[in-house]
């Protein structure tokens, strides 16, 4: 993101907590992710007034309420699209979207490719718990078929999607994954995502202790494996190969990072090309319609 918003203040992680009490269940992985966000914001010295925290609907979409910042709590699936507009309006601010797997990849699935390919300069933290929690436990796009949930009493009929392959394919320029049980790793990756100029996607496995009884803390702890040292984060093919879990392990860490002009960079180029400025004479535009 724009470096202008970094290292503006000195605030401890807990000073980024808002006055609203956290409403998640005890043992929920989301607590760990929220703490990692506080830590990342603190380490980057971000002025809360220079941040827009935006979400859709779901348990994880409550996150903005708990963070000191400007914020929007929007509609199910639409956070990324709303954030795109907000980011274009204020490219000088930090824009962070927080949401879940259902919000992002089911109802909001039509928007994800476009934030990525447009390279909107923002950070998208996806709390991936393989379940719809707020509606009390329906299977999601990342649920395993074994999951017996509210609407899948006999197990699910669908193959789960892979968020990492999805985001790599559509051109996200920062793709990382972590597990909520590793708060330091989460914080470092979120920090890197905010610092990155372009669309940053951080997928964080987060256990739902109330409704997903198969993707437990133990399951995720065993599932993840740190990205091997020597992995080249500029190599898209290598990132995709890792995302496919060659040894059955989900990679944890930064998989891919690329430098590409952001959406606002490109829009600004257009303005420069036409010599645009706020005082451009409207009569010149009107005169074009004279017969």
């Amino acid at each position: 993101m724009s470096t202008a918003a970094l290292h503006q203040v000195e605030m401890k992680p807990k000073e980024y907590k808002s006055e609203v009490s956290v409403v998640w269940c005890p043992g929920c992985g989301h607590h760990g992710i929220l703490n990692a966000i506080y830590r990342a914001l603190s380490e980057l010295g971000i002025d809360p007034t220079k941040m827009m925290s935006i979400s859709g609907i779901g348990c994880s979409s409550r996150t903005p309420y708990f963070i000191k910042s400007y914020k929007m709590h929007t509609l199910h699936g639409r956070a990324g699209a709303v954030a795109t507009g907000a980011q274009i309006a204020r490219p000088d601010l930090v824009v962070m979207v927080t949401g879940g797997d259902g919000d992002g990849f089911s109802i909001g699935g039509g928007h994800m490719p476009h934030m990525a390919r447009k390279n909107v300069d923002m950070t998208y933290v996806l709390y991936d718990n393989g379940i719809y929690g707020l509606t009390k436990g329906q299977y999601s796009p990342t649920s395993r078929p074994e999951l017996k949930a509210y609407t899948t009493p006999y197990g699910g009929p669908d193959t789960p999607m892979d968020p990492l392959l999805y985001m790599l394919t559509y051109g996200a320029t920062y793709v990382a994954q972590a597990f909520a049980g590793k708060p330091k790793v989460c914080a470092d990756l979120i920090k890197g995502a905010i610092e990155h100029r372009g669309f940053s996607y951080v997928n964080i496995f987060s256990q739902c202790t109330s409704f997903n009884h198969i993707d437990t803390v133990e399951y995720y702890r065993d599932l993840v494996e740190e990205v091997p040292t020597g992995h080249d984060v500029t190599d898209l093919g290598a990132a995709m190969a890792l995302a496919r879990r060659p040894n059955g392990k989900a990679p944890m860490g930064l998989l891919y990072q690329d430098k590409r002009p952001t959406l606002v960079d490109r829009l600004q180029e257009i303005v420069t090309k036409v010599g645009g400025h706020p005082d451009y004479d409207l009569n010149k535009i009107i005169d074009l319609s004279r017969p």
Partner: peptide
């Protein structure tokens, strides 16, 4: 849907 969402985001901002 994205259009109106972006409009709301930009207007908020």
């Amino acid at each position: 849907i994205a259009s109106i969402s972006q409009v709301i985001g930009a207007s908020y901002a």
